[in-house]
Design a protein around this nucleic acid. Structure first.
Lengths: 204, 204, 204, 204
DNA sequence: AATGAATGAGACTTCATTCAT
DNA sequence: GATGAATGAAGTCTCATTCAT
């Protein structure tokens, strides 16, 4: 009996997850506005109406999908950085891993760099929706640590530096996502790391 | 007779210009998807159908409006930089003027940082539409010059550095556009300029 | 054992009753079309599906709820009139009590005057659904009695007079229900009673 | 040229009229809630979207259709009564003509007696929508005149009497509309007229 | 019998685009 | 060329009803 009950609840979770996964996939692929709920439902193998059992409306689905995606990406990243001891190494690794993770999934990359911006309404309607802020906060924290460690000049403003790093990542990925395939992301990352004085031998 | 002909052609140009101007204004204000052709037509004081005499469709209007806006911004920028002799100064001035110009017009800033990304279809449908590339090319050129002048380390890859600069601008402006008004753009720009070793006394 | 069985059957009746009661409450409050089965189920503290164990569909529930409401109203009325001996007095009392009962419960009044008409389909689909007919029959009977008593002119057609009385009640209540609250129902009833030569001293 | 222009404007009017006519026809036949805009459009031989060029939404179409129908009915009635000199005769004629007009068009009758009530929301959303009030006002005026003429007892409250008359009409028509066809409206009208002391020889 | 998650048909309304004038 | 009335395809969301548990 207990097992059965669990399986019912699990089924619900599975269904919700399937919808979120489908939403990320298709939103990322076609953009928010060009995605029909019915497509997501079909992809998730549920009826259209089922989507509305789990999400208030299309906006809500977008927000939750986006939040979950970013949270997951960020906590994956944090997990992979945990073993490092020095903040500055974490910082550089963050840069590389993040770019590579995005470069490895064009749809997700597009979702994060393009779609996330497209909805000022979201930011106006749902002011608590600030998925990028967590990233900035995390990087800023690493930089502050690195400064404390003496690995980064103490004159540097951590938030400003965080924006430079994340802005660069974002721009590079965007160019790559929107580009025609000519650009080598690996080469670009290396060149940028050089500029930031990144000693790659430290990092890999 | 000749005069008349010119005036007819001028009228046509004026009409086209009025539509483009209206499109920029309203696209920037409300976003591409939320802007109706009829609004643009009304703002430009022409009939809805008239828009289709000058532009193939809404996409086309968007592309042309965007291109013209960016070209204009860029040539304005270039004009203001012409008096400078050293590339590195031009570069730093570019950075400051560009951010300030965007910060001075939230709608245009939003248009350039947000809307321009929103339409992967555009990039797929119209591969020749690459308005940001011109910016990258220009900045890359300045950096190459500065390297030749000996003002920037010669190990630096100019394109990578251009992406860092433009990515940072883009990110800062985006944060500011999408933010809730708490962020001071002037302070942020200063902090960033410091990181790039920008000596402000050189620039103003 | 027997007790248990009874209690099981009673439980079933209780459930059915709870649903009907909830239906009347909510249909009356929000109208047929604006009432969701799930609301009724929630109000009756049963699952949505349970409603369909007792009623074929929403129409059926409406019809049964309406019938029970009207039957109850009518038998309450009859009970209160039983003590009277003269038909004509019963008639006039019926008029007053009916109007006052409706005026005392705007939702039920709305249900009876407005909702009951709304569904021609009902009358077409379910010709046996004629809740108002009982009222007409009852009033007609009273009038016939009053004529037999010599209290109403014998030239009068009882059914026609019944329609005048009930039509007037219905119209007055409808005006009041749909109105903006300016109308005094007590004053109106009095004026109407005067026209029908109702001697109020006979009635209270 | 002028002629052509007129014909364009006339075409618009014709289109609007066609939509209103279709709306009355279908709303009356199937009820407001069960009528699809697309049905009305099809019946009026226009595209679905065209309906929205002339009416803000379905509610608006309903209100305008209802208002126009009732206004037209009332002014037709007034026109036919103009030739009469005595208010009391006008009153009695009003009664007969009104009932007969409704009896002659079951759909319109249904619309007026049934649909008009169904939308409390309308009365709440659009308080200025009070189509029946004009009827009451008109009848009340006739009664007041008849009292002044000495043809109706002066103790009678004109508004209350107007409600009796209109309530009776409404009820009779409703019974007939919702009934199964057994009821003879002519006989009923005659019986009612007798009760109101209507001398039919005066009226036809 | 009871549940309530799932279904999916259905309708209003918008708006880019067309075309007769 | 200019107009703007007309078009009609398209998409979100609701909710009565079903059915596996």
């Amino acid at each position: 009996m207990k097992e059965k009950k669990i399986s019912v609840e699990e089924k619900k979770l599975q269904k919700r997850d399937a919808i979120v996964k489908a939403a990320i996939e298709i939103f990322a692929h076609k953009g928010f506005q060009n995605t029909k709920i019915s497509e997501i439902a079909q992809y998730a193998k549920v009826a259209d109406g089922t989507v509305y059992l789990y999400f208030k409306n299309k906006d809500d689905l977008m927000i939750q999908a986006m939040s979950e995606l970013l949270s997951k990406k960020l906590s994956d990243l944090k997990a992979r950085l945990d073993s490092e001891e020095k903040a500055v190494v974490k910082l550089y690794k963050f840069f590389q891993i993040h770019v590579r993770a995005l470069a490895g999934d064009r749809n997700v990359a597009r979702f994060i760099t393009v779609e996330i911006r497209q909805c000022q309404e979201f930011y106006e309607k749902y002011p608590e929706f600030a998925p990028i802020s967590e990233y900035i906060d995390f990087v800023e924290g690493l930089i502050a640590e690195a400064i404390a460690d003496g690995d980064i000049r103490k004159e540097i403003n951590p938030r400003a530096y965080a924006m430079i790093l994340l802005g660069t990542v974002d721009f590079v990925i965007t160019r790559w996502v929107l580009g025609n395939g000519e650009m080598s992301i690996e080469k670009t990352v290396e060149d940028i790391a050089d500029i930031f004085q990144l000693k790659t031998d430290l990092l890999l």
